[in-house]
Simulated assay, not measured.
Amino acid sequence: MILVTGATGTVGRALVGRLPAGVPVRVLAREPARVTGAPAAAEIVRADYGDPRSLARALDGVGSAFLVTSRVGDDDERFVRAALAAGVRHVVKLSAAAVTDRRADDAITRWQRTTEDLLRGSGMDWTLLRPRAFMSNALSWARSVRSDGVVRALYGGSINACVDPRDVAEVAARVLTEEGHTGRAYTLTGPRAISAVEQTAQLAELLGRPLRFEELGPQQARTALAARYPQELAEAILAGAERQCAGAKAGVDVTVPALLGRPAGTFRGWAEAHLSAFSSP
């Protein structure tokens, strides 16, 4: 039995539809009604990391688990403790590429490093997936693209080897169902680094209409982020943008094509598949 957490999120939603037919799948969700795309035979259970009894029920009989957490705090520790008690053999953790950057010392990166250390010392088999930024982060521009034909971002000329989350999901499906991945940490990137300015140009070409890029200043970006996130997370995102501006996120890794046997997906390919989000109704 494979347990998938985060099935209403970017990677987990894509993962549940990519697991091989015939593999028993259980999906953990705080709001089961929001789970879409799961196989008809999948078992969908209501559980929360903060509820030990619900976690124990969700993990009963599970051999491998895909672990996604979105709240900085104790959720990972609670899950690992419950998985160990339930006899789970293998945990695949969605982490972040920044953990390998010694210059990264923000709240999000420290949290991911702590979780990685926790898993390595748990006694269970583990695999770490460390993606660069998701191409789907561009969806945050969709409203302004539709209404004003504008993309607004910080450090628009800096480049990031962002990855198609569908590739991350496909890697996760392989790691969960194939031998030979335990004790491995995989950095997952796209085929080349790209800037927000170039992403804007590609979106404009695909949409067939002009788009304008507007550079945000650091304080403008801080104000915008503070409206959406707690201060600690907003500051972590800003710190990541500073490191990107310094070139820390430009490196391209070959793991995605090596594991999947095909080139990593491009931003243009991702944008073509999600173009309706940027199109005016």
Rank of each mutant, 00 (worst) to 15 (best):
Q220H: 07
L67K: 02
L139A: 08
H181T: 04
G217I: 06
V163H: 01
L203T: 03
D125W: 04
T182H: 05
V254T: 09
D125I: 06
A21Q: 14
G149I: 01
V91H: 03
L94Y: 09
F79N: 01
A271P: 03
G208Y: 14
A104P: 09
P165I: 02
D75I: 00
A98T: 15
V35I: 13
P20Q: 11
E178T: 13
A86L: 11
T200M: 10
A14W: 05
G265V: 00
V45W: 02
P52M: 06
G180Y: 04
T182L: 04
G180L: 07
F267H: 01
L206Q: 10
R130L: 11
R113I: 14
A193P: 02
A96N: 14
S279G: 13
G87N: 05
D164K: 07
A104L: 05
L59C: 03
A246N: 08
S136R: 09
E178Q: 15
Y186R: 09
A65H: 03
T223I: 07
A40M: 09
A83D: 01
L84G: 11
E272Q: 14
L238G: 15
P263G: 00
S95E: 03
P165S: 07
L259N: 00
R13T: 14
R174L: 15
K249E: 09
L15I: 07
D76S: 11
G63K: 06
G123R: 09
A250K: 01
R89G: 12
G63R: 12
A65S: 12
S144A: 14
E43H: 12
Y229G: 05
V145Q: 01
E272V: 10
S122K: 10
Q244T: 15
L128E: 12
R30H: 14
V45G: 03
Y155N: 10
L55W: 01
P230T: 13
W141T: 03
G37T: 08
A33P: 11
Q199I: 05
T187F: 11
C162V: 00
F79Q: 00
I2V: 10
R152I: 09
V72M: 10
R228H: 06
D117R: 15
L259S: 01
A138F: 15
I2N: 02
V11S: 01
G22K: 12
A56C: 04
